[in-house]
Design a protein around this nucleic acid. Structure first.
Lengths: 208, 208, 208, 208
DNA sequence: TATGAATGAGACTTCATTCAT
DNA sequence: CATGAATGAAGTCTCATTCAT
């Protein structure tokens, strides 16, 4: 499904999956603490529980780890999101439910999201598109929901506005993580969610 | 005004200012291209037009440069913003004008904003608060504008919503830079501005 | 016949011979391309058609491979040479025929000769003598031929000169391979052979 | 005069020359002992009397050292050769004198010649031509001498034979170093020289 | 003040070899 | 006998920083 192939010297596919998962888990934790550049491959190997030599049996370069991390996080987000929004229909309420679910996932996966958010830019030109593609897919998901509700005559939006609104939702979810230093002092997740939904639907203009 | 002191071996304050400006200019351009970590102090010295030895007469460490860069960019943004919004009053129209002005500044200073946006996290725990403080100040500015218009009975917002709306505005301006890869394909700056203002004021709900 | 023992974990002698032949063939081809040091044991195993683990069942170290390669090439050269000079007598013509045959073999086994020529020096102090011994044997062969022709009153040479001439012949054959970048542009093998024989027999002095 | 540029981070040209000379001297000595591949950059730095960091101020890569070594050796050989053969004329005697001088230089610079002889092949495709060019130049030198003596009616040689003879002389000089393990047991330098000159001029055929 | 050569800790990566299966 | 995952010592190279001039 459009992933970048990361070659490994090891043949056993199951083992590759397992080891890479251990690796990614360790890496996320380290990147969270020190960022990608300040984390050494040795640290990652150690935290993963294997030797530096073994690490390089499963990747070609440090950058591969970053890619695997980003990829894995996106997959995690998507998976959790699917769990949360199993059956969404085409009403405004469904949009709200989706936003709520999305914010909840962002909250749960704060660390991962933050890492990805701050380190994607360190990906090479080769790997970046694969990750941006996922970002676009997620935007498209919300776009789809908004469009359905619009068809259902519950929303008042031009097509261009739909796109912008979808981006806004996405960013506001990420904002909860990368502006946590201020937002999570001001609001609980529930408050934040309610307020953003209110602003999204009604705007700030005083009616009448 | 709450800046962090960056010591220098040189005494002449005017010279310090001048050299640091050259340095920051060179650094921004290099950080934009390669990021903070991939840029070497040697490159910065060279691009600044002086030797590596001289560079270290004006800063203590590479991180100092990053701090000076971030600091300088914030100052730049604020300065430009003040120019654009010289006399803003307390109406909804004034809020719109401010948002428009802010987006315009973001657009003009894309590269700088992007650099700052992506590299703040590399600041040490010591320097970070100084920069976050500026972010808070900027949010406060929009918060102030929104509050005034609310006093003026033009907006329908709780205090908590005011804060959130201010954050949204700020982030949507930055978004124009860090999501340029997609947004600037979809919209012109004017379109983007209009749409975001529309969404901000009216939300997406179909009335009636 | 004075070979160095290379121990193996495997008992079946026939299998050892077979596997080592596969190994040497692969190694020659790789050494030719990248040299001994730039070739990895993994590559050799792969090119040989078995696993790295299996490789080490048949040798103790990478250097063993180099020794086997050198040894095998010398054997190859000798074998081919024997085929070419089946029945050589004691005349000057026999010497010419031998030189011609030797040059022909060098030409045919260029790649192997080149590999050996360039990599012997990487052999350990322990293995080197075994290979040098073969070089001496080959020289002795030409020395023998020259001596016979001398006995036959066809050559004018002191004993010391015989040795030197034998060395010259040997080196001129190898030269055809390790100076191929220039010699094979200047001459065909036949031209090269004829000229070297002429120079060998008649020298460069103008008679009379 | 057709040298490859090896960039340095240091600006002072004189210093570059000095440091590189120290470096090359140390490297030759180490390469002689262990070969290029078994010698580490750290060892070279240490033997040169400076730190690994300093080493890399004067070269870009380990291979640069090898190039500098080869280049320097060739220059050394040429220089010594020019000293020895200051005024050579166009007689057969002059050819003999040149060969004698060349063998003498080879003998004196044995270690260097050996290193170069064994390690040129490790040069990259980029650097190799620069070194081969020098080899061709040296061959051309002897070719020139032979041609002059031929014009002078002292030699009996076709043009093609002249080239081959020049190559033979060159290789026989190098042979004195790379076959030292046997040749220098059999002959003194003077004997070797006399014999090779005799073989070169008169060949092995019995006259009459 | 300005310069730039020198430093060396430490980064990433490779690869010969082992050993449990 | 065969396999291939695991190991870690060791290699090359970078770069922030210092200090003598």
């Amino acid at each position: 499904m459009g992933k970048k192939e990361v070659p490994s010297l090891v043949k056993d596919e199951k083992l590759i999956k397992k080891r890479r998962e251990e690796m990614v888990k360790a890496a996320v934790s380290l990147f969270k603490e020190n960022g990608f550049h300040r984390t050494t491959t040795r640290e990652i190997a150690k935290a993963s529980g294997f030797s530096i030599g073994t690490l390089y049996e499963y990747i070609r370069s440090k950058e591969d780890i970053l890619y695997l991390v980003c990829d894995s996080i996106y997959d995690g987000v998507k998976e959790r999101l699917n769990e949360e929004m199993s059956s969404s229909g085409n009403t405004a309420e469904d949009v709200k439910a989706a936003v709520t679910a999305y914010f909840k996932v962002m909250d749960e996966m704060q660390d991962e999201v933050l890492v990805m958010y701050q380190e994607v830019k360190s990906l090479s030109h080769e790997a970046l598109p694969y990750v941006l593609k996922k970002e676009i897919e997620m935007t498209a998901m919300f776009e789809g929901l908004l469009l359905q509700a619009r068809e259902n005559n519950e929303l008042s939006l031009s097509k261009q506005e739909v796109k912008a609104a979808a981006h806004n939702i996405l960013i506001q979810g990420q904002m909860w993580t990368f502006r946590r230093w201020i937002l999570q002092k001001l609001y609980t997740l529930e408050e934040y969610t309610d307020i953003q939904i209110k602003l999204l639907f009604d705007g700030i203009r005083r009616e009448g």
